[in-house]
């Protein structure tokens, strides 16, 4: 009996502690975000002098300026198209590869896996853009949006592995039965695997969208010779700096705050996908 109470007390303490930890996590995460949002309403001097976290007199004009200087609508539309397309291609290519790698044996699989794994360690950052740009200009594609989308999609190594890991955990019987029934691999993929991998594909979609939306260097370089394609992040970051005179940090914060909205919308959409697994389980239970 005594042991039972002790355990109960222990569980309660654990519960309280974990809620405390969760709340402090929220504060830790939210504080800089709030600081950014409030900072976007300050004057530049106010921001850097750091007198108070609240703006003295909200400078909504920062947003108008960010809107105008960053050409929000035109570049925002570019960003939306590029990010959505990249997201779609990324989900498609990584899920195809991830599924095949998880379920089938084929010549060269070992080689492929070890190459992918090895490439995870290697990074040369934006330097890779030299050869890529050279290649693109040789085939006359350095000015197209398609190139930007494909380059931003990239090799998808992490995503392929994520999908592969997820598919490996699914019970084999689910798709094996269908294969034996004579369904083509495509149909198994489309009708069985895709719905089952929704949670992880949601992650892939969200992260790809977010990364593309926030990408600076690649987008800058690939839109260089065709400024009509400039993306919003490039435009916003360009608000930041002038080398021989003061940076306009307040405008940049305003631009960044505006740029949060689209990614958050995608988050809300994809969040349903992570949640869905849970719901289905609940219904079954």
């Amino acid at each position: 009996m005594e042991r039972f109470y002790m355990e109960k007390a222990f569980v309660t303490i654990l519960k309280v502690l974990s809620w405390l930890l969760l709340i402090s996590l929220f504060v830790f995460t939210l504080y800089p975000v709030i600081y950014t949002l409030l900072g976007s309403l300050k004057t530049n001097a106010e921001l850097t002098l750091g007198k108070s976290i609240l703006p003295e007199d909200p400078q909504w004009v920062n947003y108008i300026k960010a809107f105008k200087d960053a050409n929000f609508f035109q570049y925002g539309l570019n960003s939306l198209i590029v990010s959505s397309a990249t997201m779609a291609i990324a989900v498609l290519t990584s899920s195809l590869s991830g599924y095949v790698l998880a379920r089938y044996k084929f010549a060269g699989k070992k080689l492929m896996l070890s190459t992918y794994q090895a490439m995870m360690f290697v990074t040369i950052g934006p330097v890779a853009l030299y050869p890529i740009m050279n290649m693109l200009s040789k085939i006359g594609m350095e000015k197209s949006m398609l190139s930007l989308i494909l380059v931003l999609t990239g090799g998808q190594i992490t995503n392929v592995f994520l999908v592969m890991g997820f598919v490996q955990r699914l019970p084999r019987e689910l798709d094996e039965a269908a294969t034996i029934d004579g369904c083509s691999i495509f149909r198994v993929y489309g009708q069985i695997i895709l719905p089952l991998t929704k949670p992880i594909l949601g992650v892939v979609a969200l992260f790809t969208f977010r990364n593309t939306w926030n990408d600076y260097i690649t987008s800058l370089i690939l839109t260089m010779s065709n400024r009509k394609l400039t993306t919003l992040t490039v435009a916003v970051v360009q608000l930041k700096y002038s080398v021989w005179a003061a940076a306009e940090w307040h405008i940049m914060l305003a631009g960044a705050s505006l740029a949060i909205i689209p990614v958050l919308s995608v988050y809300i959409f994809t969040n349903k996908q992570f949640m869905s697994g849970l719901m289905e389980g609940a219904v079954k239970g």
């Binding site: 198209i81 959505s84 397309a85 779609a88 594609m141 000015k143 197209s144 949006m145 398609l146 190139s147 989308i149 009509k228 394609l229």
Partner: peptide, 9 residues
């Protein structure tokens, strides 16, 4: 996007 991309290019 395929269409717009082609158009753009």
């Amino acid at each position: 996007t395929g269409f717009t991309a082609c158009g753009q290019s």
